[in-house]
Structures are given as C-alpha cells and as structure tokens.
Amino acid sequence: MPMQPAPTDRRALQTENLNVYYRDNHALKDANLIFARNEITALIGASGCGKSTFLRCLNLMNRQIPHCRIEGRILFEGTDINTADEDVYKVRRHIGMVFQRPNPFYKSIYDNIAFAPRQHGIRDKAELDELVESSLRQAALWKEVSGKLDTTALALSGGQQQRLCIARALALKPEVLLLDEPCSALDPRSTRYIESLLTELKDAYTMVIVTHNLQQAWRIADRTAFFLLGEVVEYNATTALFTEPVDTRTSDYLSGRFG
C-alpha cells in the first residue's frame, strides 16, 4: 500500500493490522493508518467500503454492536486501546465523535453541552458556565445562541445543531475528534461554515473525517485515505493523492469510474 507516514513524534492515533468482522463478514482488512497531531485526515471511498466501520473503531463505538469482532492494535498516544480491560468510557472522552445527522439531546442548549461534563464529575456551576461558553465559542455558535441557552436545542437549524454537537464533543476537551460525514445532512452554506470551523479547530485538535464529498476532502484535509472493499488502498498527503494517485483503483475512483 502506498503510504506516506506521519512523522513519529507527531502521531496521535495509529492502527496496526486492524481487522473488523461482523459475524463472518470481513468488513475491514488489515488497516494500518497513522494520524498526525493537529491535522485533518479524510477517509474517502464508496458506501460500504469500511471507512465508517474504521472510524467507529477508533473510539471503540463498534463494541456496542453485537457479533462485531475487532482485531489488531489501536494505538492512542502510543498505548493500545483495543484491549479487553480498556476503559472505553475514558477513551471516548479523549476521542470525541460527531455523527452524520445532527443529534442534539432533547434538552436545552446549555444542558446539551453541560450534561456530559456534569456526569464526568464537574459540578461547579461557574466552571460549567465557563465550559459551555468556551465550547460554544470554539464551535462558532456562541454569538447565535448566547441569549437563549435555556431554550430547547431542537429549535436550532440543522447547521446550528451540528455545530452544537461539535461544541458538545469539545466540552470534554478531547485530543481527537472523529467526524462521520458531519455535513451530509446539511445545505451547502452550513457545510462551508462547518468546514471553515474545522480548519480553525485544527490548531488544537487532531481530526479524522469520513466524507462522501471529494471536494470537501480536497478543501480541508491534510491527508486522505482511500478505502475500497474494506481495504485501505492508498494513504497520502491530500494534494498528492488527488493529483498523482499511485494506485489505478484510486485514480479510477477519483475520476468517477466506480462508487
């Protein structure tokens, strides 16, 4: 597999021979990827190619699925987290996730963000207020909602809801943010807004984003990995992968010949 590994000292997250099975279905085959700190990595490929499966391994969300087997190593800051006695709850605090469809809780805007920190032990009101404000500011939502923190989050527009979900993940101060097609349910304007937001967040977070939108990968990702039928075909700096793909399957996909 043509690979352009990130420099060793900047590795935030790394997989070694990661295999995923749903019963007998071998959904992900020997994925070896390295994600560099403070970079955005895009995972592209046709539907069902295993990119979402891969993403959901990184914060151990796949463990929820019955009959799903994950083999191989997932190194977070150098430690394997794919072990039976790993504390998944702690892992997920450090590796946040944003989903395809905005899924704010049926709570107020304030509680959407403060809820998880509260459950994780932050009880101090001032601290929570501070956390809510800083997370909303980071997600570029503060100006729009600062006056109505007590109203239900469901009254927000789709794009605002998705930014709220990002703020909700940021409130736990994670190192890594996983985004599973975060813009697929949004209109182009909200999409661009979120893209520029992600680019700004890059300074503080490592991000992995699954996307169907090749332009999006091109616009925001530093590196891109191309998945096909459960395999990582090619992983390289985005510009290199898009302009000079090494593997013919990559160039076929990029030129729209399948998927």
């Binding site: 914060n59 969300m61 892992v91 989903f99 704010p104 049926y106 998880a116 909700r168 993940a169």
Partner: peptide, 17 residues
C-alpha cells in the same frame, strides 16, 4: 432514535447514564 443513544455513549457515558 438510536442516534440519541450513540450521542451519549460517544461522550464517554455508560448505557446506564
């Protein structure tokens, strides 16, 4: 919706919470 549950779990919360 199951997405509500996923949101909770992805924030490092238990099924119970």
């Amino acid at each position: 919706p199951s997405t509500q549950r996923e949101a909770g779990l992805a924030l490092g919360l238990t099924h119970w919470e």
